[in-house]
Design a protein around this nucleic acid. Structure first.
Lengths: 258, 258
DNA sequence: AAATTATTCCGTAAAATTTACGAATTGTGA
DNA sequence: TCACAATTCGTAAATTTTACGGAATAATTT
């Protein structure tokens, strides 16, 4: 959706193709260089940042819509994607920016009763990706993107800071029940890398020796016979996730600490 | 909504008062006589059971809608109520029963394009109540209610068995992170009572001696100087939840086993 | 070639928590 | 007063978590 014609069609007749009153917002977590970051888009003209999102096609299964929206935005086909909350306690979210402003800034030929200005619930999904593999695409409404550190998220449009907070809280809780990392790390990784990932997500220090012991004891990772050169230091061994054990743990859930 | 006139109005013009395409379904867990049960309503004419539910008013905050719907149905004002999932992967859920059948069974004067037959996402909430305190109200569409044991839920209308399963799974996971019981037990309860509640929810045995030690160590309950007469046996002491510690644990979350 | 430096990684002991279970206590009816 | 069934107390064993000393290692510098 990038030409003016496509946008006009979407704005005027989108409610025929998509379900009105419901949207999907995605909090996309990326990890790279020992940083946990979130992908934000800058809305053209509004001078503000917001979460990538989209609408659900009228005959499209919900989870499929979420995957489609992520795919369109990041190019990633197969990623960890999970619903975490529905936001709908602020009935007139979009009105924070008036329809007038919106219509003017984007040069749209529509009225205040357009479907986009109606009450909308946001279904929040969060995704975990390796952000070096992502190719972000902006669209008509957005002109820039940026990976923001989770501790430095700016005030977002449409009350979306609450959504980011909730996503982060869900991720932190979930890490105690489910393995995380498969979608955030390269296929082969070192102990220091995954250790740092967990520390970053949980926001606290973990003893590296005990941490790796734990992951091995749970059977979630396997040591390889290769090492990674990291400059003037001892080369750490590479590890891989044990696919079966990982999947099993995802399904069953595990109760433990790190 | 019980008179024919009210129903006609709701069916014909409900989409003006309520948001179309979205509904709330509630899985109401009740506990009594050492049984964990779920409240189901029988749909008049359709010969089937379903979850209590309702729609969101156009200007009503989502969580308020969920509380209102529960209140209308059970008479309870203040209860534990929590969103757990949005269901929307089966785009044409209601079509399992055809519009024709629906229209005929309820004697409605509407077309197949009525808003009630459009694609609808269900936002699932679950509630915890003491079911001896509940006064259930049926409405025009339903003619009976019953508290069903969680292990014996019949096939439900509209694919709602999946929702019940998910609610139960969420409850079982949550019990490892948050205290549960305040809304399911009377104000004063005995160790055997709360012990049995936890066993019922988790579906497995817990050593009673260790269980009560744990709750006391966490500071969640306080022993009272009263006892409950339970027939020809030693009278157990009564306990109360420590409100502050309980609230704190609810907010912060706890990581532990029982 | 040896020394230096920063980092990985192995192993063990102490502390804390969880699990297991024996036995005393108690309220009521026979 | 005895028997019974259920509650409650207490302690020891097993397991898990936490803490941390010190060896190994890969370049780079001397």
């Amino acid at each position: 959706m990038n030409t003016q014609r496509e946008v006009d069609e979407f704005v005027k007749n989108g409610h025929r193709e998509y379900l009105p009153h419901v949207s999907i917002d995605s909090v996309i977590f990326g990890y790279h260089d020992q940083q946990l970051r979130i992908l934000l888009l800058r809305w053209r003209g509004l001078e503000g940042w917001g979460l990538p999102g989209g609408f659900i096609r009228r005959r499209e299964p919900l989870s499929q819509a979420a995957h489609r929206i992520l795919q369109e935005r990041t190019g990633l086909e197969d990623l960890f994607l999970q619903q975490f909350h529905v936001f709908g306690d602020t009935p007139y979210r979009v009105r924070e920016r008036s329809p007038e402003e919106f219509i003017e800034k984007y040069g749209l030929d529509i009225g205040h009763d357009n479907w986009l200005f109606e009450r909308t619930l946001s279904i929040g999904y969060f995704a975990l990706v390796d952000y070096s593999k992502v190719t972000v695409r902006t669209d008509f409404f957005t002109d820039a993107y940026q990976w923001w550190e989770v501790g430095e998220i700016p005030p977002l449009l449409f009350d979306q800071n609450e959504e980011v907070e909730k996503a982060l809280a869900t991720l932190r809780l979930q890490i105690y029940h489910q393995p995380i990392g498969y979608n955030l790390l390269p296929e082969k990784f070192t102990i220091p890398e995954i250790h740092s990932l967990y520390e970053t997500i949980l926001g606290k220090e973990l003893d590296q020796r005990n941490f790796s012991k734990k992951l091995l004891a749970l059977g979630l990772i396997r040591k390889l016979d290769e090492r990674r050169a990291i400059g003037p230091h001892r080369s750490p061994y590479l590890y891989q996730f044990e696919k079966e054990a990982y999947e099993e743990a995802l399904k069953q859930g595990i109760v433990h600490t790190y």
